[in-house]
Design a protein around this nucleic acid. Structure first.
Lengths: 346, 346
DNA sequence: ACGCCGGCTGCACACGGTTGCAAGCGCAAT
DNA sequence: ATTGCGCTTGCAACCGTGTGCAGCCGGCGT
C-alpha cells in the first residue's frame, strides 16, 4: 500500500497540525480567529488549511458544542406553492444567519409529523419550524422532552400554541367579504375545506362576522366544503351552482379552491365576474394569471417564513417570552369581483 | 443546586449504561440489535432506553461512522413550482431510505451554488443533488476534492456531466412542434429564455429539427427571448404579435412563459386557440387550470426527483458506473392548440 | 484436571472538533 | 536573583457513538 496516496478522508485539524508543527488545539484556535494565537502562527496555519483544502467538520463541531446550527422545517408537502414560498423565506433567513435547513414532508398526517419532529430531534437541530401543523398544542409534552424551540406557521390544530406566526384570518376574511358586500352582493357563498382546520374555522368566522355586521342573513346552504384543492372545489362549486337561488359571489378558502371554482363556473357557461364574483385567499402567483385575474387576500408568505425563522433565532438565543405573531393579510382587488347582475340591472 | 433536576442535555447511552449497570458499549450494541448481546440484557436495556426517552444522536453517530445518512439538495429557488415537485420526489425517496435532506437555494447564481455545495461538504452529507445546475461540468475538480457523489437534474450548464437525470428535451420539443405542424401551422414561434441554458438550447434544437423534417423554413424573426417567467414572456409575446406576419402558434420554453404569453395574447384581443395556438413545457399543475387548459410537455417531475435520489443511493453504495439518465417527456394535448385560422377558412 | 470453546461483556480507542488549565517563555519590576 | 505578568502553546478531557480485541465465565469433551 502506498502511504503517500491522498487519504480517502478529508483533512482534519490534526493533519494541519502535523503539517505546521503545532498542536491541534492551536490549529483549532487559529481557525476560529482566537486572539490567543500568535498572528504569524495563525497566518501560517490558515495558509496551510487553505492549501490542504481543509473543510471543518460541522458534525464534529456539533458534537463538541452541542449546537449544530441546523434547523428542521416540516411542511405538509413542499409541492404546495404556498408552502414553497414560506420555506423560501425561512431558508433565506436561516442562511443569513449561518443555519442550514432540514426539510421534511408530513403529508399532513399528524403521526408522520410527529415522527419527523422526532427524527429532527435525533439530528439535534437547534430549532424547528412547522407549517400548517396538524399537531399544534399537542407538542407541549413533546417539547419538554426534547429541549428544542418550535415555531408554528399557520397552525391548523385548534388551541393556542406557545410560539407561532399566523395570518390574521378573521380580519382578512371579513375584509374580503366586506368587499363583496360593498359591491352589492347579498348571496355570498363560502367555499371552505371539509377538515375543520384552524384556517378554515377562522376564515369562516370572518365571513360570518362580515355578514352579521351588514345585517345579512346567514344561509347555511351557501356553505360548501371542498378540500383546499381545485378538485374538491370543483365538486363543491357544482353544488352551489345547482342551488335554486345560487350565490352571486363565492369567497374561497384559498386560491387553489378558487382555481377549481373558476373552472367549474366557466364550464357551466357563466362568466366571472359578470355572473359570479370570486375571491380567493393566499395570493399565489397564479392569481395574477388566471382569466380574469383573481381578487384575493395576500399572505406575505416569504415574510412569514422570515418572521418564523427570526423568532426561532430569538428563542435559540435564550428568549423565554412567548411569541404569538399575527400578520395582517392584504386584500388584492383584481378583476374577478364586480357588482352582482341584479345590481347592474337597476 | 439540585442534583436531581432533569439534566439539560438529552439522555446518552452512558446514562442508560449506569441505569442498567452495564457498559456503554453493551448499550450501543443492544440498541443496534446486535446478536452479541444477551437477549434479556438487551431487552432490559431497550426498556430503559424507552423509559428514559432516549434518542440516539445522529451527530455522534455520524462522527463515529462518517456516514451521516444525510443528503444535500440545492435548487435555484424552492419557490419555483417545478423545482418544488422535483424536491418532493427527492425527499420522498430519501425518506424511504432513512436519509434526511438539507435544502438550500442558489438563486441561480453559480458562485452561490458552489458556496452551498461547499457548505454541504462541511455538513458531511453523503450525497448531493442539484437541480438546474449553473455549474455542471465545473464540478469535476471540486468533486475530486470532496469525496461526495453528485447527481444533477436538468443540468443547465453546457457539457456532459458524470451523473445526471435529464428530460429528453430535443425529442419532446420536436414532438410538441410536430403536433403544431400536423395541425397545419406554418408560422410557429419559439419563445425561449435569453440565457442560453441547456434546456433552452436543446428545446430550440428540437424546434428546428421539427421544422426541418417538415421542410418548413426557419424564420429568425419568430424566435423571441423571454426569461423563463411570465413577465419576460409577456414582453417577448408583445414583439411577436407586432410582427407584420405574426405567428399562428407559439411554442414556449416553459409553462411559466406560456402563462405570460397567454395573458398578453388575451390583452391583444386575440383568442387561444382560435387565433393563436400555444404550447408550454413542464406541465405545472396550473396548466390544467388556465383558460383554455394548456397543451404542454409533461416532465415527470416527482419521478425525476426519485430517480435522482435512487442513482445517488447507488453511487453512495459504491457504484462506479456513470449514470446518465434521459427521461422522456410526454405531450399532453389540452385545449390551447387547434388548427390555424387559415386552415379553417379553406 | 485440563483445555477448549462459545457466549457475553467491558476496555480502550477512534471519529474531529472545542476548551479549561497548566506551563513555558521572555522581560520588566522589585 | 526572585517574582510576577503577558503572551503563546500544548496537554488532556470532553461531546456521544461505534467497534476490535481481550477477557471472563460456564460447560463440555477427553
Amino acid at each position: 500500500m502506498n502511504v503517500f496516496k491522498t487519504p480517502p478522508r478529508p483533512a482534519s485539524i490534526k493533519d494541519i497540525a502535523v503539517a505546521t508543527g503545532v498542536s491541534h488545539s492551536t490549529v483549532s484556535r487559529a481557525l476560529q480567529d482566537s486572539p490567543l494565537v500568535n498572528r504569524e502562527t495563525a497566518e501560517k496555519i490558515r495558509r496551510a488549511a487553505q492549501h490542504m483544502g481543509y473543510r471543518a467538520s460541522a458534525v464534529a463541531r456539533g458534537l463538541a458544542t452541542s449546537k449544530t446550527r441546523t434547523i428542521g422545517v416540516v411542511v405538509t408537502t413542499i409541492a404546495d406553492p404556498f408552502v414553497a414560498e414560506v420555506v423560501s423565506g425561512i431558508e433565506e433567513a436561516a442562511n443569513d444567519h449561518g443555519y442550514s435547513v432540514f426539510l421534511a414532508n408530513s403529508n399532513a398526517e399528524p403521526e408522520r409529523e410527529i415522527k419527523v419532529v422526532h427524527s429532527f430531534g435525533e439530528r439535534r437541530v437547534d430549532g424547528i419550524v412547522v407549517t400548517a401543523s396538524r399537531v399544534g398544542a399537542l407538542y407541549v409534552p413533546i417539547l419538554s422532552e426534547m429541549r428544542v424551540p418550535i415555531v408554528l406557521i399557520n397552525n391548523q390544530h385548534p388551541g393556542e400554541f406557545l410560539h407561532s406566526v399566523m395570518i390574521a384570518n378573521v380580519e382578512a376574511s371579513r375584509e374580503a367579504v366586506n368587499h363583496l358586500i360593498k359591491l352589492g352582493h347579498r348571496l355570498i357563498a363560502y367555499l371552505g375545506d371539509r377538515f375543520g382546520h384552524q384556517s378554515d374555522t377562522e376564515r369562516f368566522a370572518g365571513y360570518r362576522q362580515a355578514l352579521e355586521q351588514a345585517d345579512l342573513p346567514f344561509l347555511p346552504e351557501l356553505i360548501a366544503h371542498g378540500d383546499g384543492r381545485p378538485e374538491g372545489a370543483e365538486r363543491a362549486t357544482q353544488k352551489l351552482l345547482a342551488l335554486p337561488e345560487p350565490p352571486t359571489a363565492v369567497f374561497c378558502y384559498n386560491d387553489m379552491s378558487a382555481l377549481g371554482a373558476l373552472k367549474r363556473i366557466r364550464a357551466a357557461g357563466l362568466r366571472v365576474p359578470e355572473d359570479i364574483s370570486l375571491v380567493g385567499f393566499d395570493d399565489l402567483f397564479v392569481a395574477e394569471y388566471t382569466d380574469p385575474p383573481l381578487t384575493t387576500v395576500r399572505q406575505p408568505k416569504r415574510h412569514m417564513g422570515r418572521l418564523a425563522m427570526e423568532t426561532l433565532l430569538k428563542l435559540m438565543a435564550g428568549s423565554q417570552s412567548a411569541e404569538h405573531i399575527r400578520v395582517p393579510g392584504e386584500l388584492i382587488v383584481r378583476a374577478s369581483t364586480a357588482p352582482p347582475p341584479s345590481e347592474r340591472c337597476r
